[in-house]
Write a protein that binds this DNA or RNA. Structure first.
Length: 556
RNA sequence: UGCCGAAUGGUGUAAUGGUAGCACAGCAGAUUCUGGUUCUGCUUGUCUAGGUUCGAGUCCUAGUUCGGCAACCA
């Protein structure tokens, strides 16, 4: 490399740095946190991860990698009512699939229940927390509303001894669920509702998927999260915008207790995508009500759904980098995700031929036994992918849409008397049409074949399959899950009213023999049609089922 | 009518007081044995009104609009 190009490279503009990178840049410059970057991805195991989580995963793990730090995988499992091990395993598989590793830094907030309890007692000792006897309804009433201050609970002035005794008995199971809660003693007049003596612990006799029946009191998110971060020595605690109003409480708790570490909470805008929904609750509703066939249904925006659909992990990573990170509540167009998917697949996927909606063609100047063998290119973007033999016989199948009896304007493909190129195999000219006498439907075409050397002037090349070698396979074609960009927009309707009835269409296609041996999870480009991935659930050896990943970019 | 936050083309994002740039989408063209890919060009933008400054997307003031917050959820 010449000196000049070295210079131009070093002076080329630095890659743009989003606001969190800039915060870290400044922290590192100031020597904060011993110049370390330790992040965490803290899912609650109460549902499957979706593309919105991918943004957070790529951010947290990506930042750690970029700055030579580390990222912890920590389950925020403080509410056993909603959580389950089923989700724990699925979450790990999804994060790994995305390409990230947590090493030995695999934690559960429930690992810290004992420590958390200790900090709660410390708060009580310091007169910063009290046990409250208000019922849930009274609690609400006392809390007040945003525009009016709340009023203090009668329990607020209990002595430290009383509070300690009550809290210990709460833990010991002396009281029924809901009888008491532990609250922070902050400020009932705070304009921030979260600072009006928030609940720290509640009594819940629910079996926990990790701690079993060891506990009947469970810490709330606000208490558990900041302390878990501090215990793990997290430097940058990155979360979504809705936690912005929780930050004063995050800081307050860590300021009151004797823990040396105080991570910085930074909020960013969650991902919204057009033509889908992104909340676990609504995704769960789609599963429960049977609108889709499960969390990993290829129509779902879940990571397992996208993986099954055939979206490459690299495409999702590229997408997450492209969308950026801001505090602006935005809606990203699905087209951008699809672009990233095509970009990745175009470079990597082997080309194969499949005819989705077959129309029989008889080559009139071939005898039954006559035929030729051509070579098909496996990937024009990658010469090392090589070629494969591809036979042409008297009877072939073409795509029904590649013939038009009365061609519309600018139709380049086959029509009566017209010619097209057969991919890799010369030309055909349509000489006759065979129709069903009853329905009038075109059932076959009779065409004359000309070899490639003929140089027939055509404007289109179509794909085709030799009838004797063609095999059948189930192909699933997907459209967007919803018919409108924002299914939540109409407040008078349920989002399920906008479900796209054509989101899944199943058909039997004709595939080339090489495809019937395709392994589960393998992706191909069906030439001129789209990208397809062998379904990992419903395929049998030698009998693949194909999921359409994404169509080729629409022709103009 | 409380508090917190955010506003840059259709969408997403950059510009950190000094030429408003990039990507997606759209449109047009070139190349092409995939109406794919690739390449070229084009359309479209700083929420409003004042102010500071030689100079404002950026700083100040006022407003407008949008989002979040009133689980013993996270």
């Amino acid at each position: 490399m010449s000196e000049e190009s070295n210079i131009s490279e070093s002076t080329s503009p630095a890659p743009s740095r989003h606001f969190i990178r800039q915060i870290i840049d400044r922290d590192l410059e100031a020597g904060k946190n011993n110049s370390q970057v330790i992040t965490r991805f803290p899912p609650e195991p109460n549902g499957y991860l979706h593309i919105g989580h991918a943004k957070s995963i790529c951010l947290n793990f990506g930042l750690a990698k970029e700055f030579g730090g580390r990222c912890h995988l920590r389950y925020d499992d403080t509410n056993p009512a909603a959580e389950d091990v089923e989700y724990v395993d699925a979450i790990e598989a999804d994060v790994r699939w995305l390409g990230f590793e947590w090493g030995e830094h695999h934690y559960f907030a429930s690992n810290y229940f004992e420590a958390l309890y200790g900090y709660a007692e410390e708060l009580i000792q310091k007169g910063k927390a009290y046990v409250c006897s208000l019922s849930a309804d009274e609690f609400k009433e006392y809390r007040g509303v945003p525009t009016r201050p709340g009023k203090e609970s009668p329990s607020r002035n209990r002595t430290v001894e009383e509070n300690l005794d009550l809290f210990r008995r709460m833990r010991a199971g002396a009281f029924p669920d809901g009888a008491y809660v532990l609250r922070a003693k902050i400020d009932m007049a705070s304009p921030n509702l979260h600072m009006r003596d928030p609940t720290l612990y509640r009594i819940k006799r629910i079996h926990h998927h990790r701690t079993g029946d060891e506990w009947c009191i469970y810490p709330m998110y606000d208490f558990a999260h900041c302390i878990s971060d501090a215990v793990e020595g997290i430097t940058h605690s990155i979360c979504t915008l809705e936690f912005e109003v929780h930050r004063p409480l995050y800081d307050w708790i860590l300021d009151q207790i004797s823990i040396p570490c105080h991570p910085q909470q930074i909020e960013f805008a969650r991902l919204n995508l057009t033509y889908t929904v992104m909340s676990k609750r609504r995704l769960l509703q789609l599963v429960r009500e049977g609108h889709v066939q499960g969390w990993d249904d290829p129509r779902m925006p879940t990571l397992c759904g996208m993986r099954r659909r055939g979206y490459p992990a690299a495409a999702i990573r590229a997408f997450c980098e492209t969308i950026g990170v801001t505090k602006y509540d935005s809606v990203t167009e699905m087209e951008l995700l699809e672009y990233c998917v095509r970009q990745e697949l175009n470079a990597k996927a082997l080309r194969r031929i499949a005819v989705l909606d077959p129309l029989r063609v008889v080559i009139t100047n071939f005898s039954d036994t006559e035929g030729i063998n051509v070579q098909a290119i496996n990937n024009p973007e990658d010469e090392t992918a090589g070629k494969r033999p591809f036979p042409l016989t008297r009877e072939i199948f073409i795509e029904r849409a590649d013939f038009a009896e009365t061609p519309p304007p600018k139709y380049f493909r086959l029509s009566p008397g017209k010619s097209v190129r057969l991919r890799y195999a010369g030309f055909i000219t349509c000489e006759d049409i065979e129709k069903d006498p009853e329905t009038g439907e075109v059932i076959a075409l009779h065409c004359r074949w000309d070899p490639p050397e003929t140089k027939v002037k055509v404007k289109a090349t179509i794909h085709w399959l030799a009838a004797p070698t063609a095999r059948e396979a189930e192909v699933r074609l997907y459209e967007r899950l919803f018919t409108v960009a924002d299914p939540m927009e109409d407040k008078d309707k349920d989002f399920t009213d906008f479900l796209n009835p054509n989101a899944l269409r199943t058909t039997t296609a004709l595939i080339e023999p090489a495809l019937s041996e395709a392994g589960a999870g393998e992706s191909f480009q069906f030439e001129r049609t789209g990208y397809f991935c062998v379904d990992t659930k419903d395929s049998q050896p030698g009998q693949p089922v194909f999921n359409q990943v994404v169509a080729l970019k629409a022709s103009k």
